[in-house]
Amino acid sequence: MTDGITEREETTVRAPAIDWIPILLVAAVALIALPLIGSFSTWVTLTMAALAMGMIIFIMASGLTLVFGLMDVINFGHGVFISVGAYMSLLVLRPLTGWVESPSIALNIAVLVLCILVAMAASGLFGLAFERVIIRPVYRQHLKQILVTMGGLIVIEQLLHVFFGGSPITIALPQTFRGGLALGPDIIVERYRLIAVVVGIIVFLAMMLVLNRTRIGLLVRAGVENPEMVEALGYRIRRLFVGVFAAGSALAGLGGVMWGFYQQTLTVGMGLQVLVLIFIVVIIGGLGSIGGCLIGSLLVALVANYTAFLEPKIALISNIALMLLVLMWRPQGLYPVVKV
């Protein structure tokens, strides 16, 4: 095009740049904590614990942020899929105790993978039923969504009580994942935390791959921005939502397995306990943003771990304070998704 207006129009176009500030913020929080903690080895231990915790929170929260973003559904029931996933791992761990206690790395990995697969399948199926029975009647009704999803959470929690009992259940890590790995003098990192970080990175990369390199991923990204226009292009957004809901529930189940092994104790209310953190992560990350969810998870975990060490009394409110500060800085979250 040769006319002047079009030439001027072109100058307004620029390549989309990665917003590095939230990423640098994570690094800054970690670096600022180093002199406050004083000991390098303690700082490494706390940071690795935070990275592992952050990655597990990310796994649990990533499905919820897409459900929020895609269909504007506030699902307080998300926490119960974490509990369901964690308890379903018992179906694998109890009959395969020999594999858990075996010194074989292959058997240890196999038992973890089996736990993950069973938990994801069960949580995904629960998610499908939950969407059909609980969520579908209350689309676009936020108050009712809060009430009925909370009710659904309580009902499923009570079912877990009935089948597994109300007492906390201790679970053992597979042999290979127990103990620590010496990374240097006085620096020992728990092996399972490294596993959690690796699983979290794999989930993040897989999600980015699906969202950016597949047609389903394109539809999800488009649907988060403008579900009505996706329908006007001829796609059934409801089916897409059901799929995302089930996948998000399955990821919560995966997070439940990882969280259960992290704490080595299962309680029926474990999903509800971590739900507050998940909502904080989803809100500060930006509703519907996977990248924001990851950065938010890391920030929340770092702040929680450092404050618990430095000033345990303020640890309880540290994440709320973090959310307030982030929202005062970026009211739409760290990586806001443009919605029409």
Binding site: L218, R221, A222, V224, E225, E228, A232, V337, V338
Partner: peptide
């Protein structure tokens, strides 16, 4: 009317 292009795509 509002174009509704998907900004992130």
């Amino acid at each position: 009317e509002n174009m509704s292009v998907f900004s992130g795509l």
